[in-house]
Computed example of a mutant assay.
Amino acid sequence: MVAGLSLPRIVRVGRGAVEELGDVVAGLGLSRPLLVTDAFLVGTGGAERVTATLVRAGLSPRLFSGTVPDPTTDSLAAGLEALHGHRADSVIGFGGGSPMDSAKALALLGVQGGRMRDYKAPRVNHGPALPVIAVPTTVGSGSEATQVTVITDSGTDEKMLCLGPAFQPIAAVVDADLTLSMPPRLTADTGVDALTHAVEAYVSRKANAFSDGLALTAIATIGRHLRRVYADGSDAVAREAMMLAATQAGMAFSNSSVALVHGMSRPIGAHFHVAHGLSNAMLFPAVTAFSVAAAPGRYADCARALGAASVTDAEGAAAAKLVDALHELCHDLAVPTPRAHGIDPAAWARLTPLMAEQALGSGSPANNPVVPTAEQIQELYARIYA
Rank of each mutant, 00 (worst) to 15 (best):
D344G: 03
T179N: 01
L186A: 15
H271R: 12
F64S: 08
H331R: 13
G307Y: 05
P131S: 10
A57K: 10
G14V: 10
S291A: 09
A241E: 14
L109N: 15
L34R: 11
A218D: 01
M100G: 04
P184G: 11
G316Y: 06
P296W: 15
G97C: 06
V150C: 07
V11F: 02
E81V: 05
A57E: 09
S60Y: 12
P165M: 00
A249Q: 12
D344E: 10
A57T: 05
F94S: 09
G263C: 07
R227A: 09
L326W: 04
L178G: 14
S181N: 03
A171S: 06
F64V: 03
T44V: 05
G97W: 05
P296L: 15
T312R: 05
V258M: 15
T217E: 15
T146R: 00
P71M: 03
V18S: 10
V13R: 11
H276K: 02
G97A: 08
N280I: 08
A238G: 11
M182N: 12
L41Q: 09
D344W: 04
P345G: 05
P169L: 07
L7V: 13
V199W: 01
V139M: 12
R383K: 06
A121L: 05
A374K: 03
L41Y: 06
E158F: 10
H341R: 03
H225R: 02
A236V: 15
H126N: 06
L54F: 02
E20K: 15
A349Q: 14
P61Q: 00
A374P: 02
A382R: 14
P296T: 12
R123F: 11
E20Y: 00
I10P: 09
T190R: 08
A252C: 02
A3V: 11
R12D: 12
A320V: 04
A107E: 05
Q112E: 10
G250N: 00
L322A: 04
Q376G: 05
R123E: 01
E357D: 03
D38N: 13
R117S: 08
A286V: 11
M282G: 14
D153P: 02
Y202Q: 02
T51I: 12
L306C: 11
G307P: 10
D157T: 00
G297Q: 11
P169V: 02
A176E: 05
C162A: 13
W348L: 01
A176G: 07
G307A: 02
G4F: 12
T352C: 09
Q376L: 00
D313S: 10
F210T: 01
Q147F: 13
G58I: 12
V11K: 02
D344F: 07
D175W: 05
G361M: 01
T187G: 14
H327S: 00
L216D: 09
S265W: 00
I170M: 12
R117D: 04
A188R: 04
G58M: 07
P372R: 04
D89P: 02
V229K: 13
T288H: 00
G155M: 05
G316I: 04
T217G: 14
G127T: 03
A366F: 03
